[in-house]
């Protein structure tokens, strides 16, 4: 019996983000906040954003979850912080495509930073929901700022 394949999903960078998440906790100025629920495990994730002049000045998340969901949320905040709303939205889409195993352009992959390692999720389809929850929440929050 071997857990080698687990290393594919739980890379050191994933475990590191999960154990020491970046931008965790509510930010002081919030323009949009979205809570999403993972119906399979019952975990909630909250994403907070502060957008000024179409630019994400701050982004954070809150909530408990599995290694994948916590790591993915942490990576997401690193990736999206400081970006324009439209840029962030397209990064969300690129992340969705990546986790579904679709090919994305090399520069898109690069723009996803640490989160690009979650491309290995395509091999673990039952866990895609865990990884994309925070990104879906961010997408909804960003779309909320456009209304």
């Amino acid at each position: 019996m071997s857990l080698n394949k687990l290393n594919l999903l739980y890379r050191a960078v994933v475990l590191d983000h999960a154990q020491h998440p970046h931008h965790k906790g509510e930010i002081s100025q919030v323009t949009q906040k979205v809570t999403l629920h993972n119906p399979s495990c019952g975990d909630d994730i909250q994403v907070f954003i502060c957008v000024a002049q179409n630019q994400i000045s701050e982004i954070s998340f809150e909530g408990q979850g599995c290694t994948i969901s916590q790591a993915s949320a942490s990576m997401m905040t690193d990736v999206l912080q400081g970006n324009s709303v439209s840029q962030a939205l397209s990064q969300c889409e690129a992340f969705f495509a990546l986790t579904m195993g679709k090919a994305i352009a090399e520069n898109q992959k690069e723009a996803l930073g640490d989160a690009a390692v979650l491309g290995s999720l395509a091999e673990f389809p039952m866990r895609i929901k865990c990884a994309t929850l925070a990104w879906h929440a961010a997408k909804m929050a960003l779309e909320g700022t456009l209304k």
Partner: peptide
């Protein structure tokens, strides 16, 4: 250890 992580780990072991 989150239950989903445990289950994915166990799944890797059949």
């Amino acid at each position: 250890i989150h239950p989903h992580d445990v289950a994915t780990g166990l799944d890797m072991l059949g």
